[in-house]
Design a protein around this nucleic acid. Structure first.
Length: 260
DNA sequence: CTTAATGTTCCCCA
DNA sequence: TTGGGGAACATTAA
């Protein structure tokens, strides 16, 4: 469910709802989503006032009057401002007005009191300039697909948007990062900014069940050019879109338009 | 029954 | 230290 555009959409729907609210009580039920002492975490957040809601990479950082609650949606996590508890509800926040539910069937997501992983994130893709982006990229010999998925290189990209960005910039997912020419890196940087900006405008991609905090789906999946289009015609050249495994992930690309 | 899924980490080996 | 491959985590849907 959650790459940068989806998490950004969740944060934008969540912020006006949460800021200024007081957490009356909280309850956590998963040893995976909330590793460690779950009751202690619930005690810590109880009584706190929510002062800010922000995104950093794919993390949601909830600023409290004392401390910080950091959430990651993993693969199937959802934060909902309304709804009923199910077997997949692993977090329940009762607010002075309203409530907040955390649902996550696969439980790859996390809710923690601060998260050291946030400190290790690379720059934000919508903030990093071309010069810095190029300089960082030139030092890395790995395949471009693996590098763009690496959160300590650039924060927030995931499998869908990496495939879309590489298609838009005409770069093969197996291309060696350090060997890309300056014009190709510039094109990729622009494709990254354009793709993420447009995806946020469309409120993210709803492939299976992603919804924002109000329960609304995104629309950007309608505009995917390669992701999920294996065997279909390339929008540029008509060739059949291919799918292979790169960096352990299903990778969609046009064998004609994307060069190594 | 098998496979793959919008993510991340860890382990082994080069 | 970097990088590749694979497995693991838990669940569902095709």
């Amino acid at each position: 469910m959650p790459e940068l555009p989806e998490v950004e959409t969740v944060v934008r729907t969540l912020a006006p709802y949460l800021i200024g609210r007081r957490i009356v009580s909280a309850r956590f039920t998963s040893r995976f989503v909330t590793p460690g002492d779950r009751k202690k975490l619930a005690r810590r957040v109880a009584g706190r006032r929510i002062e800010s809601v922000a995104r950093r990479g794919k993390f949601i950082v909830v600023g409290l009057d004392k401390g910080e609650l950091v959430m990651h949606l993993g693969m199937t996590g959802k934060l909902l401002s309304a709804g009923i508890e199910t077997t997949h509800t692993h977090g329940v926040f009762t607010l002075d007005e309203g409530m907040l539910l955390y649902e996550d069937p696969r439980q790859f997501g996390r809710i923690e009191w601060g998260d050291a992983r946030v400190q290790r994130l690379g720059p934000e893709p919508l903030e990093v300039g071309l010069a810095e982006f190029s300089a960082r990229l030139r030092k890395r010999k790995t395949r471009i697909k693996a590098l763009l998925l690496n959160q300590s290189f650039i924060a927030g990209l995931g499998n869908i948007y990496v495939d879309e960005i590489l298609f838009l910039s005409g770069i093969h997912p197996l291309a060696q990062a350090a060997r890309l020419s300056a014009p190709r890196v510039a094109k990729m940087h622009q494709a990254m900014v354009d793709t993420l900006t447009l995806a946020i405008e469309h409120r993210g991609s709803s492939i299976s069940d992603y919804v924002d905090a109000d329960g609304n789906r995104g629309n950007f999946q309608m505009l995917h050019r390669v992701y999920g289009r294996e065997g279909e015609a390339c929008v540029n050249c008509g060739a059949a879109i291919k799918k292979a495994v790169v960096a352990g992930r299903g990778t969609h690309y046009c064998p004609v338009c994307q060069k190594r």
